[in-house]
Amino acid sequence: MGMATPDAGVISLDGEDISKLPVRKRREGGIGYIPEDRHRHGLLLEAPLWENRILGHVTEAPNSKRGILDPKAARKDTERIVREYDVRTPGIDVTAASLSGGNQQKLIVGREMSHDPKFLIAAHPTRGVDVGAQAQIWDAIRDARREGLAVLLISADLDELIGLSDTLRVMYRGKLVADADPATITPEQLGSAMTGAATGHLEGTEQSEDGDAR
């Protein structure tokens, strides 16, 4: 996202090298971000919902035009998000802190989807979220993926990973150690890869007891 500087390597989006771009430019360039810690990185807890809708996209329509905010448009769009993503709230003027975790996350998802992202980074998107909201968020991600959105899902929830992904990569101690096909992999295999017990390409066929992959 641009919040940390890499030691080496290049990040490119759609063929363009964005490694040197600041956070705002990356967002404007079409990267959506559902942060792992929504309280620290995704919301202004004591601000009303409609201002939270603006967060992260203050330079884009409908939030502002040429540097001047448009609260009316932002509010209207917030109401739309609330409707479409089933955010349970009595109104858009309440603070983000007064919403439950699941509804907070739904608001964030709705917000990030609203700017036609090319690429969505969803980090632990359903952590701390109730089952109903979790299902809704999964639906939203699947819908967007169907429309062509590229999604980088970062998670430790095995069902989520297997259920949503098209391809899987496993990272262990900062290194990519395994890849797998979600259509065939089992949660046990995936779990052992995540603890470093299995590496390389993981196949979903019968495995030996110690999870040796070939």
């Binding site: 919040m3 956070v23 620290r40 990185h41 919301l43 967060l55």
Partner: peptide
């Protein structure tokens, strides 16, 4: 908006694109 956001939560503001 950026100013107020930074005042309310520097981490959220940074994640949202504020320098």
């Amino acid at each position: 908006f950026d100013l107020r956001a930074t005042g309310e939560s520097e981490s959220a503001a940074q994640a949202s694109g504020v320098d």
